[in-house]
Computed example of a mutant assay.
Amino acid sequence: MLISVIVPCYNEEESIPLFFQEMEKVKGQFAGRHQFEYIFVNDGSNDRTLDVLRELSASHPTVQYFSFSRNFGKEAALYAGLREAQGDWVTVMDVDLQDPPELLLEMAQLLENNADLDCVGCRRVSRDGEPPIRSFFAKQFYSLINKISDVEMVDGARDFRLMRRPMVTAILDVTEYNRFSKGIFAWVGFKTEYLTYKNVERVAGETSWSFWSLFKYSIEGIVNFSEVPLSIATFAGILFCLLAFAGGAFIIFKTLVFGDPVAGWPSMTVIMLFLGGLQLLSLGIIGKYLGKVFMETKKRPVYIIKERSQPRK
């Protein structure tokens, strides 16, 4: 049984040797029951990540790598790794060791003992070490997406999971350009069981995920897996038409009964600015979806490989 280990890398020159060392320890505990192949994806790093991968691949026949022509993002790296993987089982792991390699043993055991189980994933039950504001918004994101989407996404679920080949094939059949892997993993279905663990901090380097980048990533997830935001413009338009009708009727009634003329341009200005902002918000939501359609119709490749390791004989 071959297990493919997909490892996206972006500026991780310090983490790669530590990750590989820990993985080799875990590999030894499999006692030869499974073979391993490592697929490192260099996502346009600007440090020595590529040099480290070249050295690692040259000295270890189980290590393969390929390097993008620029930074295409983690989603592209995951997709590329899945396409390159040859294993009967495939796992996706972060190189910073926030995905504990020792959990791979338990994940493999669950798959071995449950023939009807297609995937074993991991989810964090704590976010120790993260900024409180990031943890708060992460929880709000999962709460929101599960209310407005037909696909249920597990709070705290990581990309770290061990999948059988049929599930990997199904994921690769989802060829859309705008990818949100957490949603795709859930959308394709297949029976999945989750292991829980407490958050683990990075072993080296710094994360490339800022609060703003995570916020944009969450917007991508909402747009990719829910049409509810498109309804905002419709419901808001109906609501404010009714309010405008009621307000007009009140003004006419007040003028006829009390002879009180309509006065006050500041209030009118505020109302106009508010409605103008609402229209721009609605146009922005529609524009976001149109932008997704525009990118899909271009049929651009999700990634471009500039360099890859030599194939093994």
Results as ranks from 00 to 15, higher is better:
Ala85Asp: 06
Ala58Asp: 13
Ala186Glu: 09
Ser218Leu: 01
Glu14Val: 08
Gly247Gln: 15
Lys306His: 12
Phe258Lys: 12
Ile133Phe: 05
Pro229Ile: 02
Pro17Trp: 06
Gln35Gly: 09
Met107Ser: 06
Lys74Pro: 00
Glu307Leu: 01
Ile304Asn: 07
Leu103Gly: 07
Gly248Ile: 11
Arg33Trp: 03
Val52Gly: 03
Gly247Trp: 14
Asn11Leu: 06
Val228Phe: 13
Asn146Gly: 08
Cys241Leu: 15
Ser282Tyr: 01
Thr175Asn: 04
Val95Ser: 03
Leu111Arg: 13
Lys25Val: 02
Glu102Leu: 02
Val203Gln: 15
Thr207Met: 05
Lys216Gln: 13
Ser57Lys: 03
Lys182Ile: 08
Lys139Met: 02
Gln98Ser: 10
Leu105Ala: 09
Glu13Thr: 09
His34Ala: 12
Thr175Asp: 11
Tyr38Glu: 08
Glu130Gly: 01
Leu230Cys: 03
Glu307Tyr: 02
Lys254Ala: 09
Ser69Glu: 14
Pro266Glu: 13
Lys139Leu: 07
Glu130Thr: 11
Cys241Gly: 01
Asn146Met: 04
His34Gln: 05
Lys313Thr: 04
Ile6Arg: 00
Gly264Asp: 11
Leu283Pro: 00
Glu12Tyr: 04
Asn46Phe: 07
Val168Ala: 10
Lys254Val: 12
Ser282Ile: 00
Ile251Pro: 01
Asp43Glu: 13
Phe141Pro: 00
Phe240Cys: 07
Pro131Ile: 02
Ala58Val: 06
